[in-house]
Design a protein around this nucleic acid. Structure first.
Length: 503
DNA sequence: CTTTGCGGGCTGA
DNA sequence: TCAGCCCGCAAAG
């Protein structure tokens, strides 16, 4: 492999993170010579510097539903996260996924949106607010300065990703096309090709046939509902690595998510869990083929029942993700939590330590651990170990000879927003980039786009609630088993996100 | 109609 | 003073 400057350890930092600046500085770094690649899903206390020519940066786009917030500073655009809209009953969709709608940005539209019902179970919708910034919504700041657009994010999103804007738009347009074809069947023999031809590798679209279009109309009255809201993992290069999201292969799940949130009118605090890949020994290749279980056998698998309670957002990625979860167990996924404010001081590579909750470990009781002493935090580090998943092929990939796709998925073990500065050399063909992300790598490997595994400490205001200090709630969370844990995990986000970001 | 950005104004720390 | 948030307005799609 030719030398790639971005393989340097310190290149793991975004260009924006390499420089010392704050969005509020009187003087920003002048005339940056390098820019970061646009990140659709920034998460954490990150800074990026985009080219002022970057269209998405110009539009201050984000995958997260960010609304404008007045900070009384005309030079700095501030946006805060609206969270995600979910089914209050957390019903499982046909494919096992859950609704994760994009909150309408406009207040009025959002109120209308919340008055609607889940298209799947007709129960109420619930807005899960973002509280990832010391109890407040995550905020994003944009500042145009010279030839650069400076971006700074504060806080870690403590909820699943909503549909991205592009996904929402794609779904709506697809829905409209489907409607057109549905009511004009004589002109179009089948609407399937319409769905299949959709560019967006989204569960929303791939599962459209799960419900009849007329049914959708009756249930929703408009086109604002995705059939499944969990964005399907797509690959960094949608053209080369497009994978059909085979959600239909996932039938065996009985995940009772969100069961602690049955009242749609109350936004119950969520346990301060986050997940971090703590892989003390897991750098070796996993014996995956022997571990992977076909989805058809899973419901009868007791081990799987246990694993299922540990897994992270099982719904969207189907059996593929279940295998990842299986791997996660073997490689020490740790739920973590933190306290408000601490992350303020943390930058990439210095994310604070986290407390491990051993509930994923069948040998240990499930306990909510209190905030650890600062010293303990200091001992913890971000793990950027590559975990080998390549033994398993996503069902959608089984028919492909492109094993590179598998390694692409398998290698995605890095924190979301893994900073990747954009140097001219780094803008090569995606294939080359992905090859660089071989699971055989022993060190951190950059990935284009956003891959999310490491979850830094989250900040929750309720963590200071005295009623929680005895861990009772945590017991509830843990011992309610599959439901609560995965429910929160669902809300927390997806560790394996492969967002289709343009290259 | 919705999104987006702007800005006035209020509140609490 | 700062941050968060509510509101209304206007432009744009």
């Amino acid at each position: 492999m030719p030398a790639d400057p971005t393989q340097d350890a310190d290149s793991l930092l975004s260009y924006g993170m390499k420089l010392t600046w704050d969005i509020n500085d009187p003087q920003m770094p002048q005339e940056p010579t390098h820019f970061d690649h646009f990140r659709e899903w920034p998460d954490g206390y990150v800074r990026f510097i985009y080219s002022s020519q970057e269209k998405k940066a110009q539009r201050h786009l984000s995958g997260w539903a960010m609304r404008n917030t007045n900070n009384h500073n005309g030079h700095i655009l501030k946006k805060s996260c609206l969270g995600v809209v979910v089914c209050a009953r957390a019903c499982a969709l046909q494919d096992g996924s859950h609704l994760q709608l994009r909150p309408a940005i406009c207040d009025k539209a959002r109120l209308k949106q919340q008055k609607k019902v889940c298209p799947n179970c007709h129960s109420a919708l619930e807005l899960v607010p973002c509280r990832g910034h010391s109890g407040y919504p995550v905020t994003n700041f944009w500042r145009l300065d010279g030839n650069a657009i400076f971006f700074q994010a504060k806080g870690f999103h403590d909820h699943p990703k909503p549909e991205s804007k592009s996904e929402t738009e794609a779904r709506r347009s697809s829905f409209k096309r489907q409607m057109a074809s549905f009511y004009q069947p004589q002109k179009r023999s089948s609407r399937e090709p319409e769905v299949g031809s959709t560019q967006d590798c989204s569960g929303n679209l791939s599962s459209m046939p799960a419900l009849e279009a007329t049914e959708l109309l009756e249930m929703t009255g408009d086109t604002s509902f995705p059939i499944t809201a969990q964005p399907c993992p797509s690959l960094p290069n949608a053209d080369v690595h497009r994978v059909t999201c085979d959600l239909a292969t996932f039938q065996g799940d009985a995940v009772l998510t969100f069961q602690n949130y049955s009242n749609p009118s109350v936004y119950l605090p969520r346990p301060p869990w986050s997940y971090e890949l703590a892989d003390p020994v897991g750098t070796s290749l996993s014996p995956y083929p022997s571990l992977y279980k076909d989805s058809s056998s899973l419901p009868d698998d007791i081990d799987w029942v246990h694993l299922n309670s540990l897994q992270y957002n099982v719904s969207s990625y189907g059996s593929y993700e279940r295998s990842l979860d299986f791997t996660a167990k073997y490689h020490g996924w740790k739920p973590t939590h933190g306290k408000p404010g601490l992350e303020e001081r943390v930058d990439y590579g210095q994310r604070q330590a986290v407390t491990t909750c051993p509930y994923y470990n069948p040998e240990l009781p499930c306990r909510y651990l209190p905030v650890p002493p600062a010293g303990a935090r200091a001992l913890q580090t971000v793990i950027t170990t590559t975990v080998a998943y390549q033994g398993y092929q996503h069902p959608a990939l089984k028919h492909s000879n492109n094993t590179q796709e598998v390694s692409t998925l398998a290698s995605c073990t890095y924190a979301e927003n893994l900073p990747m500065p954009i140097y001219p050399q780094a803008l090569g063909p995606p294939d080359a980039v992905m090859q660089a992300a071989s699971p055989l790598e022993t060190g951190p490997v950059k990935l284009p786009g956003d891959c999310q595994v490491l979850r830094p400490t989250l900040a929750f205001p309720q963590e200071t609630d005295p009623s929680r200090t005895d861990g009772t709630d945590a017991w509830d969370v843990c011992l309610s088993g599959v439901g609560s844990v995965t429910g929160y995990l669902d809300r927390t986000g997806q560790p394996f996100n492969f967002n289709s970001e343009d290259f």
